[in-house]
């Protein structure tokens, strides 16, 4: 079982469309994994049926028992997050501000504060239209720490791949350069960096590559919207050469991208004979060869 993780640093580069196309192409031979849990939407392209759901519990918040609270104000004194408000007869916790540090519950001498685990999201295993399964998730409102959720989703995907003896796990990675993307990279056999020919695309590619380097992972790159700005494309190519990253493909700016999104289909399904689809198919073959190296 080999895992390919597709990341991009910035949003809107076409990472999810490309990942979903790879899944569609590989069909029943791969498990798909959506680690972009903050704004998950790969399931839309692959017709996920949300067959199995489990709660994702993470983080705690303080809960004050009104009946036990003597309104002494000790909790209010120690809270650094302005999460406790004195009321007429008791103190109250603001769930949005509470960081779950436990300080208030430790100083409360009346045992009126308990810490309660929060449901921070949902994890799903779905059947999808390529004939295989997909692990994905939805992060709950204001939930912190999608890194841990990402790790869970990946674990589910890998377990499925082992159980069903699949050759590939195709992971749509998290955006940014923080904890979630670090989680989504862990254990990857190959990283595909998707960027676009814009100044911010280049800027974010550099930042995310720094991260990939620290984990010693093998990576390749796809430049999307490469004809949007030839100068930036050249700059990206120069950067890739310098860093010894293989350029797998340059995709043109193409309305097929958004048209297929509008129809909720991977590009290779929406218009399989288009030039774009052919380049994506070639890219996936190259990626598979690269993993086997």
């Amino acid at each position: 079982m080999r895992e390919v993780v597709i990341i991009s640093g910035k949003g809107g580069t076409g990472k999810t469309s490309i990942s979903a196309s790879f899944s569609y192409l590989e069909g029943a031979n791969a498990i798909t994994c959506d680690c972009d849990v903050d704004a998950a939407n790969m399931h839309l392209l692959l017709d996920a049926n949300f067959a199995h759901q489990q709660n994702f519990m993470s983080g705690e918040i303080a809960v004050i028992d009104k009946d036990l609270c003597t309104n002494c104000g000790d909790c209010y004194e120690v809270c650094r997050f302005d999460a406790i408000t004195p009321m007429q007869e008791y103190h109250q916790v603001d769930n949005i501000s509470c960081e779950g540090c436990w300080y208030c519950s430790r100083v409360c001498t009346h045992d009126s504060i308990t810490m309660q685990q929060q449901k921070a999201g949902d994890i799903f295993i779905s059947d999808i239209k390529n004939g295989a399964k997909m692990a994905h998730a939805k992060l709950g409102f204001g939930a912190e720490n999608s890194g841990k959720l990402v790790a869970k989703v990946k674990q589910e995907a890998k377990m499925l791949a082992l159980k069903e003896d699949k050759e590939y796990v195709i992971t749509d990675g998290s955006p940014g350069i923080g904890c979630p993307v670090i989680s989504s990279l862990s254990g990857a056999n190959l990283v595909v960096l998707v960027t676009e020919a814009t100044l911010s695309g280049l800027h974010d590619l550099k930042r995310v590559h720094e991260l990939v380097k620290t984990f010693n992972l093998k990576s390749v790159c796809i430049i999307n919207k490469a004809d949007l700005n030839d100068d930036v494309t050249k700059e990206i190519e120069y950067f890739l050469k310098k860093e010894n990253i293989e350029l797998i493909a340059k995709l043109p700016y193409d309305e097929t991208f958004t048209k297929s999104l509008a129809k909720a289909m991977p590009i290779v399904e929406y218009d399989p004979n288009s030039k774009l689809s052919i380049v994506i198919k070639e890219s996936w073959e190259k990626i598979k060869n690269k993993i086997q190296e």
């Binding site: 999810t16 704004a39 939407n41 839309l44 949005i96 409102f141 204001g142 958004t258 999104l261 509008a262 909720a264």
Partner: peptide, 20 residues
């Protein structure tokens, strides 16, 4: 954006704003 993707993201954002 006016795509199924955009709508999916918008729903999540609206949920957030309503809680706030």
């Amino acid at each position: 954006e006016s795509t199924p993707f955009g709508l999916n993201d918008l729903r999540l954002a609206v949920e957030t704003m309503r809680v706030l």
